[in-house]
Design a protein around this nucleic acid. Structure first.
Lengths: 343, 343
DNA sequence: CGAAAAACTGGAAGCGCTTCCACTTCCCCG
DNA sequence: CGGGGAAGTGGAAGCGCTTCCAGTTTTTCG
């Protein structure tokens, strides 16, 4: 079970070689004050000569600071994480953490086993803080997250109430932009494909869209729930068409679902955008490659990651950062052009 | 700098409450032998009552097993990680690790700072093993990875020689499939967009393609290097067209570059697949959504992740797993259909 | 039934570092 | 020049757990 754990130099050895106390050596490698210039240099030389690198585990145990934070993605769908959305979040998180010396541990909790581990982790001081994403409606993790004394930053509001720390995109506002775009371009028979009913994002996007329409006095013809996947979107679109044969606008709670819906629309001989204008949500790479390219609500995903990480760092350091809502905006492409009905 | 580090129960407390020695308690929570049934149960009860969860840091320090592995992605391009490829790898890695109790720490080493951290990590026993991906040609990390006594599994062969442990996709074989497909469907004027010249993937894909053509006695009209990005592909295509106005087949070393190339081809009034058949490499989600849908070499990305993780676990446990080459296959879609020249 | 083997037990010694504390030394100024 | 505070210093006590070891008890069997 072992693979030659070659012994590495310890702080004691460094101290000895430098002719100082271990305390002093420790101060030097942590860059703490109260060390004379001479000793500091002696230690630095010893460190160099020995190739000393402090053992993080020992540091963690002694200092009670682990030096790592967790990004946990909780979901039931195994593939959810494959959504480029998360890759983008991670890039943001990672960029922010690079400024600190916190490590990022990634936990995909999409199986019962995974959820167990997350739970355990929340209790076990294996990290200095946690970022939690993609919680489902009544996810017990939400509550667990409150019990732990570890700082927890939520990515996206959970349905279970407003946590102390979170970062979210302005889903409601973004959805409203979609509604306004339809109104402005003369669409009068909109339908929507929402996400799972038990997620906050889905709810917020549906609410925003409905509000936007309501302000213009336009009724929402129909709503069907998808599951944020392409196939889910295709299926939802089938159901919508069965009930409302002639919509002239479609808003979906994610780009993936929009892509699926496009497929269904095409299969039914409906043209986009002539017959039906389509707006998605997210604006990741794939939205540019659909046929036609997708008009979609853009959210600053990378920033979301960055801000989550920053907020967590703040919380760990003892500040009490304020929650953040990041702005969304509409990226107009051909599936719902700016000009009223192209046909 | 602290946030109420509420004291958690320690093993000593558990032992005391159960009326056994700490040694025995330790044995129980590690499920080791040499504990009587009675004591075992007493400890288990105490654990339950106290809500004890072992402190992973202390375990790590004492046992010299950290309980974590690193997935490091080294690259110069900040955005590279956003490629869905990595998300898929992570899903695989994570699935494999879930069977163990190793945590996954993710390190995006795309800045000098990040590379420093990776280097430090390699020396510092902060993890039990490392998976290394996306090394560039003469990346010094390759050498560093050999010096450390930590097990290192490479994802994709580095250019610097064959490491002891690696998992790779059959890039060469896959590229050959692409060539054979062109040959079979009557294409005779193929060109290629390769990746950065200093990556092993790019080299292998170029070699495989060339070989496949050579076997049929067909010359490769032209090659241009892209950088695995969409824009790079578009630019490379421009250069290709400037030198070779009438290719009838294009193979690119990645789907993203194929997408860019499609744009350029369209701009030049060339039809796909009638005028030019296009084959990409990777077969991730986006390949299905191009216009026309992309024929592409499929590689089992998730498996790649899974196998890397398994191999690393094996190496950590002291076995000496064999390197692995995973098979690739051609996914035929409309950009290079099975029938000879549709027009 | 007795000896050897196997299963238990718990004390004690760490794992490699941080940090409290009690001093000693140095420097600045009135 | 003397007093007070800042800076420097190292001993020692942990951080919370694993594991070696030496001894004790129980099993197994010829």
């Amino acid at each position: 079970m072992e693979s030659s754990p070659k012994r590495m130099p310890t702080l004691d050895e460094v101290a000895q070689r430098a002719g100082v106390s271990r305390t002093a050596a420790s101060r030097v490698i942590n860059n703490a004050p109260h060390v004379s210039r001479a000793k500091r240099e002696a230690v630095e030389r010893a460190v160099r000569e020995l190739g000393f690198v402090p053992n993080p585990t020992a540091q963690a145990l002694a200092s009670r600071r682990v030096g790592a934070v967790v990004l946990a993605v909780s979901s039931d769908e195994p593939g959810l994480f494959a959504d480029p959305f998360f890759a983008e979040v991670i890039v943001g998180v990672s960029a922010a953490l690079e400024q600190t010396d916190l490590e990022l541990v990634l936990l995909l909790a999409n199986t019962p086993r995974g959820r167990d581990r997350l739970e355990r982790l929340l209790r076990s001081r294996r990290a200095d803080g946690v970022m939690l994403m993609a919680l489902r409606g009544d996810d017990p993790l939400g509550r667990l997250a409150e019990q732990t004394d570890l700082p927890v930053v939520f990515g996206g509001l959970p349905l279970t109430g407003e946590p102390r720390w979170y970062v979210d995109a302005d889903n409601r506002g973004g959805a409203r932009l979609a509604a306004e775009h339809f109104v402005r371009t003369g669409r009068r028979r909109p339908v929507m494909i929402t996400g799972q009913l038990d997620t906050q994002v889905a709810a917020a996007r549906e609410q925003g869209f409905t509000e936007g329409l309501a302000l213009a006095g336009i009724p929402l013809l129909g709503v069907e729930a998808g599951d944020f996947t392409e196939d889910g979107g295709a299926a939802a679109m089938e159901r919508l068409l069965a009930a409302h044969p002639a919509p002239d606008a479609l808003f979906t709670a994610s780009d993936a679902m929009a892509i699926g819906a496009l497929r269904t629309l095409r299969a039914h001989g409906l043209r986009v955008p002539e017959d039906v204008a389509v707006i998605g949500f997210n604006d990741l790479a794939s939205a540019r490659h659909t046929a036609p390219p997708l008009t979609t609500v853009h959210q600053p995903v990378r920033s979301l990651g960055r801000e989550m990480a920053r907020m967590l760092v703040g919380a760990i350091e003892g500040d009490d950062p304020s929650p953040l809502i990041l702005p969304t905006r509409l990226t107009v492409r051909e599936s719902a052009p700016d000009v009223p009905t192209g046909a």
